[in-house]
């Protein structure tokens, strides 16, 4: 049925339904994105902490082994050549673990981008809910026509806010794991 063929009451009903459906669908979509970002951030943080902890333990173990090798050298249980080879191997091992820790420690950069995106989503949703404010638009005693005009105005404001929100929030962090990324030389 075209809007012109509807009675004021029917137009009012249709506008209310459209407004609520729009808020529900768009709001739900943005909240779902926030939820996805939170899950992604949880996975990244969990992997980063595990990686950093494992590297820390491995470095500690390698340093202990270096000390044992040094003790053995001093006690005459190891030749200087054997010690040099052992020391070099442990040094390489430590560098490898430090490298893994450096990869893990980059979580802050990615999670802060995700947090920034979530904050923009939330600020946008706050604007949308602000646009639903009706007290200044609807007088205490209003006719159906007044109410309809107010609802159309609110609907337009909400649509505009959702459109602004849509354009301003782009995902830049696609990483699902704290593994080092691809390298491509042009």
């Amino acid at each position: 049925m075209a809007a012109n063929d509807m009675s004021p009451g029917e137009q009012l009903n249709a506008e209310v339904v459209q407004l609520l459906s729009g808020v529900s669908a768009n709001g739900g979509q943005h909240l779902a994105e926030i939820e996805r970002d939170l899950v992604q951030m949880d996975v990244l943080l969990d992997e980063a902490i595990k990686k950093v902890c494992a590297s820390f333990m491995a470095i500690h173990h390698a340093v202990d082994q270096q000390q044992e090798a040094l003790n053995s050298l001093q006690a005459g249980g190891m030749s200087a050549a054997e010690y040099a080879a052992r020391f070099e191997a442990l040094h390489g091992e430590i560098s490898q673990h430090v490298g893994a820790a450096v990869t893990g420690l980059q979580f802050q950069d990615m999670t802060s981008q995700l947090i920034g995106r979530m904050a923009r989503h939330l600020a946008g949703l706050r604007d949308v809910f602000g646009a639903l404010e009706t007290s200044s638009l609807v007088p205490a005693e209003s006719s159906d026509a007044d109410l309809l005009a107010a609802l159309v105005h609110i609907s337009n404001r909400v649509t505009t806010r959702f459109a602004e929100l849509e354009g301003g929030v782009r995902s830049t962090v696609k990483q699902r794991h704290m593994e080092s990324g691809d390298i491509e030389l042009f």
Binding site: T103, Q106, G181
Partner: peptide, 8 residues
């Protein structure tokens, strides 16, 4: 070139 974070 293009390097994707996190880097090793």
């Amino acid at each position: 070139g293009w390097l994707v974070k996190p880097f090793d």
